[in-house]
Write a protein that binds this DNA or RNA. Structure first.
Lengths: 138, 138
DNA sequence: TACTGTGTCAATAGGTTTAATAGACAATTC
DNA sequence: GAATTGTCTATTAAACCTATTGACACAGTA
């Protein structure tokens, strides 16, 4: 289940992608246009920032903008940054599997396959794809 | 993220599938062989039972067995029974979407696609498939 | 320089969920 | 009727989710 952290992060990134060329956009504007608590978004931003997804400007004319072109962001990378991990089970988080049953686990291959399927799907969608389907629809 | 409810349920169903022909298997045996708290499994069983996945026998020789052949169970159906829902976002739970942003939501198509991909993967694996890959491995 | 609007960071809190544990009760067999 | 099984309800400790609050740092502008 994807929490509001990931969903809000994605909506914010889409909003910023739509406003490319407007320079830095204040968080207040994003929060209002997306109808999300600004204070809560504040907590999500560091998660995106430390992955280098955003550019920041401080001061009265400050705000955020995308660090790359919309084509270069995948939904998967955004969600993984915000959620910390998209692993379907905890033993697939991190680089090593610490589960004591790991060697004889009958279900592990299922979770590994699920993770592959999910990652392939989410990494196959870019921010640009989302903008494209928006203009097609409306 | 799949919780222990779903993971334990799946492991229990695999255990029962391996013991087909042994008649009714006591929960105590399953809990011990899978190293899962028997009392916790007790709570998961009603979730599987109300979906008709198990046959029950009470009394001193009682226990559980599969209601169908292993080929007829999919991993998806077991997980959905135990977890309640495999929807990636809450607005896709249930039959109607009550989200007020539903009509203009840019991200909804992404979650719908994710759900489709996940369901197709999980419903493509049967308990018999899991037993098969076990014997192949050793 | 003082002011104002921005981002940054830490702490807190209410609610829900998770993962159990415990105990009373019901059914069945020997 | 004693023992062993399943069934049901309640309780709990910990974690997590979803914010909210407030103090602080920074950068333009008057």
């Amino acid at each position: 289940m994807i929490s509001t952290r990931g969903r809000y992060a994605l909506r914010m990134m889409i909003d910023l992608a739509e406003r490319q060329g407007e320079g830095f956009v204040a968080l207040k504007e994003i929060a209002e246009s997306q109808d999300i608590s600004k204070k809560y978004l504040e907590q999500i931003i560091p998660l995106l920032n430390r992955s280098g997804l955003l550019l920041t400007s401080r001061g009265v004319t400050g705000g955020y903008r995308l660090a790359k072109a919309p084509e270069e962001y995948t939904v998967g990378e955004i969600l993984r940054s915000a959620e910390g991990s998209m692993a379907p089970v905890s033993c697939l988080e991190g680089s090593t599997n610490d589960c004591p049953r790991c060697g004889k686990c009958d279900t592990l291959p299922i979770w590994e396959g699920l993770q592959t399927v999910v990652d392939q799907y989410l990494d196959g969608i870019s921010l640009a794809d989302i903008l494209r389907s928006k203009t097609e629809k409306g």
